[in-house]
Amino acid sequence: MDTLVRFVIALALIGLGVLLYQAWSGWQLRRLRRTPARPGLEGWQAGRPGILYFTSPDCAPCRTVQRPALAQLRAELGEAVQIIEIDASARTGVADHWGVLSVPTTFVLDAGGAPRHVNHGVARAEKLRQQLQSARAGGSGDNGPRAREMALDL
């Protein structure tokens, strides 16, 4: 078997892993959307998209990367976005409900509070911004013309 074939096989197996991860994330979001109860969103104000951010006091990447990214979004978007922070170590029941396995984990919610995207691990401001635009348009990852149009006023 030559090197090129082996390289292609490696790529295919990595791609399979990525697909499995995406399928699992999609299943997790669908399960959450079907569940009427949304613990942790007690202060949620319907009508604006937002981010549900799970962290913990000892989480280093939360402090060094995730929180600054969220602060950047807050500075850019102001009241157009709401950010709810939850200490997963203190509110384990809420973290379990949302299927949080590690921190940071961020859920991007649409205006009705339904989860549209989930990021396991650190999510950069740019990625969250795109997901918010998609969530505002009611999508789940597909940034079509309607998403781009509505993104202008986000």
């Binding site: 006091p57 170590s89 973290a95 396995l101 921190v103």
Partner: peptide
């Protein structure tokens, strides 16, 4: 405490 066996602890 609070961690599923094998999962990374949340604290």
């Amino acid at each position: 405490p609070g961690a599923f066996p094998g999962m990374r602890p949340r604290v």
